[in-house]
Design a protein around this nucleic acid. Structure first.
Lengths: 192, 192, 192, 192
DNA sequence: GATGAATGAGGTTTCATTCAT
DNA sequence: TATGAATGAAACCTCATTCAT
């Protein structure tokens, strides 16, 4: 119930620090010491909790995936039509808690490194197929069968591409504008 | 064909070796020694030719950008209508010489690391705005003004997203199929 | 049986765990955490009881020396002739409670590390001169004076060498056979 | 011929430095940095030549074994009777080039650590069986069959035991005296 | 008495880079 | 032009030890 154990609290602190540090320095370059400094702790502590750098990275990615999943479920449950559910999935990707330069940046980093880490790769694959099945499920009711795949790729790739671009941004992002833009893309692809 | 040729030949060999090695081991992990071994040479030689690891990476990215540019110009020059030119830009991205797991993979790597390297970042920005202006120029003649940006983002992000996904692939890619899929997306976004 | 007992019980548990762990992992490699796990306790507890790792090691060696001493005294008291007492000293070294791979192994470890630890070194020296004086005392009555030292070295080194070899063994040892072999060596060196 | 390659020269230097450093600090405690300092070099260089600390240790033990083997072969070839050959084997163990505190010390260290390193263990086993077969071959011609094993164990263990003790010595050793003592032990065990 | 939590100190190893040849 | 040789810098990780609870 409610009460968190110290372990969990520390976990969360370190994961937050990792997001910040990876964004600032890059996945392949950031050091344990930098992350530790960001967390106001020591590198040894991180190993105490996560076993290794890779363990920390995996935990961090799990955290991000959990955020995405939560956002998706929440939006999904409040939508009633297929189109609304489709939009809900996209909105989740551009929700306030996810669509920031920092988050997009680290997401990109993980993405680029997934092929070289079985653990990251697995997480990545799982997440991707979840999003895919959501999209497919709704699109089946919105467009003729032959266009389902095309529409799905178009929309899912759009989301990926926007994140990818967002990661390169110098200025802060505007989640609301991103959601609005996404809706317009949907309008373009799936005219009412 | 003066004595400068040898230099160019070695350059190209090292760049090819870099593409292979980065694809196999990852940008952040690959070492000079590995690249040198792939090229059948020594790490010291690489520094002799490129000055530093970053120099080699920049040269490699320039090589890739040149490939893309060549493919784009070629397709572009043979197209006559705005729509054809638009398709030509996309086809260039999915041309046989560019759309391979290896190339997409290294592209991704550079992309993810660009924010942390001024030299890569610059190259990346230049390339991106070139593609953008091509898209915009054609779309202006194909869709009403208010939709130009939306369509452009949709299509450009689509391309990015597909590459991004391709980099994760285990199996070889099918460039022809990718071009066909891209055309269908265009059909979806810009109905005739 | 005052409250001091608990302390002694814990002591013994840790010492036993140390013997097992050092045998399994090696003196120079074994960690406090491993010993603690073997004892079903925590590393912090070991420090509470022994002050430091070296303290634990010293306590463990003292334990082994006590075993040897007890075995020697016991055998010694039951022997009546010089030869019997000599054999008793050897039998003590190969007694059932001491002559096991585990014990020989850890003994070796301590031996090899003694030169680098004043505390271990001291224990080692004390033990060695006790054995030496026992041997010398009996041999004086069994062989001509000029041969005493040679015989002593031969027998004492024999014992050391056998232990040293035993520590490398894969299979369990046979104390009875070792005692029999030792007796034959005595017969060879000190013909009746 | 005769000309040594740089690699070999450096190899030898590092091995010598290792012997000294291990003797001074102990196998389990000595660091790469200390060995490097002793060799007037850097820790990185050691890894350049030996790959790892364990590689260096193995190379060092190989060096010692080569010394022993050379000494044995040399003495052996000059002896004519079984007894002389037996003495030659022992003399090799106590030869001027081998019987020093430093060498005995490191030998002990390797011995104690062999059970925890397959590579060392293998070297150790090979050496031991070589010595054993030499002893057995000669003893067969010197003592009645039933006593061969006893005599062999007595002599071989004697040698081990003396080394073991020598490793603890504070003062320099006297190889000539050790050989003389060994001869007396042989006289005791195998009366003429 | 007992132990999670935390860390400073320090070890091995890796690696880009330099340099003499 | 090419590369063994060499290394400083730095990363990850381990571990004995301390301390608050």
């Amino acid at each position: 119930m409610g009460r968190k154990r110290i372990r969990d609290i520390r976990h969360e602190e370190f994961v937050e620090a990792t997001i910040t540090a990876v964004h600032e320095r890059g996945y392949g370059v950031v050091t344990m010491a930098e992350i530790a400094r960001e967390a106001g702790s020591s590198a040894a502590s991180i190993n105490y909790y996560f076993g290794s750098k890779e363990g920390l990275m995996e935990a961090t990615m799990r955290h991000l995936l959990r955020l995405l999943r939560t956002a998706m479920i929440e939006g999904y449950s409040q939508a009633s039509t297929p189109r609304d559910r489709l939009l809900a999935v996209m909105d989740a990707n551009f929700s306030d808690s996810l669509y920031s330069v920092e988050k997009c940046s680290i997401w990109m980093q993980f993405w680029a490194n997934a092929p070289y880490s079985p653990r990251l790769s697995r997480l990545h694959r799982i997440n991707r197929s979840r999003v895919r099945s959501h999209f497919t499920a709704e699109l089946r009711r919105l467009v003729p069968q032959p266009q389902v795949e095309t529409a799905r790729t178009a929309l899912q790739s759009y989301m990926d591409g926007v994140w990818l671009q967002a990661a390169q941004s110098d200025a802060p992002l505007d989640p609301a504008a991103a959601r609005e833009a996404a809706h317009q893309v949907v309008d373009l692809v799936l005219p009412r």
